[in-house]
Amino acid sequence: MTRQAPSHAAPRGRPRDPRTRAAILAAARALLERGGLTSVTIEAIAQKAEVSRPTIYRYWPNAPAVAMAAFLETAGAANAGSPCAPLAALRAHLHALADAFAAPTGRSVAAMVAAAQSETELAKAFRNEFIARNRDATRALLMRCIAEKVIAPPEDMELSLDLIFGPLFYRLLMGHAPITRGFVDQLLAAVIPADD
Results as ranks from 00 to 15, higher is better:
residue 30 A to R: 13
residue 32 L to E: 06
residue 11 P to C: 00
residue 23 A to E: 15
residue 18 P to Q: 08
residue 25 L to Q: 12
residue 18 P to V: 05
residue 15 P to H: 03
residue 29 R to C: 10
residue 37 L to S: 12
residue 25 L to K: 12
residue 27 A to M: 06
residue 28 A to W: 05
residue 10 A to W: 01
residue 33 E to C: 13
residue 9 A to E: 14
residue 33 E to P: 11
residue 34 R to D: 15
residue 16 R to A: 04
residue 33 E to L: 09
residue 35 G to K: 02
residue 37 L to E: 10
residue 35 G to P: 04
residue 38 T to K: 14
residue 40 V to T: 02
residue 15 P to Y: 01
residue 25 L to N: 12
residue 23 A to Q: 13
residue 37 L to F: 07
residue 25 L to C: 12
residue 17 D to R: 00
residue 13 G to E: 14
residue 32 L to I: 09
residue 14 R to C: 01
residue 18 P to S: 04
residue 37 L to H: 09
residue 33 E to T: 15
residue 39 S to M: 09
residue 40 V to I: 02
residue 16 R to E: 04
residue 26 A to P: 09
residue 11 P to M: 03
residue 27 A to D: 14
residue 17 D to M: 00
residue 28 A to G: 07
residue 22 A to W: 03
residue 26 A to L: 13
residue 29 R to A: 14
residue 38 T to Y: 08
residue 34 R to E: 15
residue 11 P to I: 02
residue 9 A to W: 03
residue 31 L to I: 13
residue 25 L to F: 11
residue 29 R to G: 11
residue 21 R to L: 13
residue 19 R to I: 00
residue 21 R to M: 10
residue 20 T to A: 07
residue 25 L to Y: 11
residue 20 T to P: 04
residue 24 I to W: 07
residue 33 E to M: 09
residue 12 R to V: 07
residue 29 R to L: 13
residue 35 G to V: 05
residue 16 R to V: 01
residue 13 G to F: 11
residue 11 P to Q: 01
residue 19 R to Q: 07
residue 38 T to I: 10
residue 13 G to R: 15
residue 30 A to D: 15
residue 22 A to P: 05
residue 19 R to V: 02
residue 37 L to T: 14
residue 13 G to M: 13
residue 17 D to C: 01
residue 22 A to M: 05
residue 29 R to N: 11
residue 29 R to F: 08
residue 39 S to Q: 06
residue 17 D to G: 00
residue 12 R to D: 03
residue 36 G to H: 07
residue 18 P to G: 05
residue 11 P to L: 02
residue 25 L to I: 15
residue 24 I to D: 10
residue 17 D to S: 02
residue 14 R to F: 00
residue 27 A to K: 12
residue 11 P to S: 08
residue 23 A to P: 12
residue 40 V to C: 03
residue 18 P to I: 05
residue 9 A to K: 11
residue 25 L to R: 15
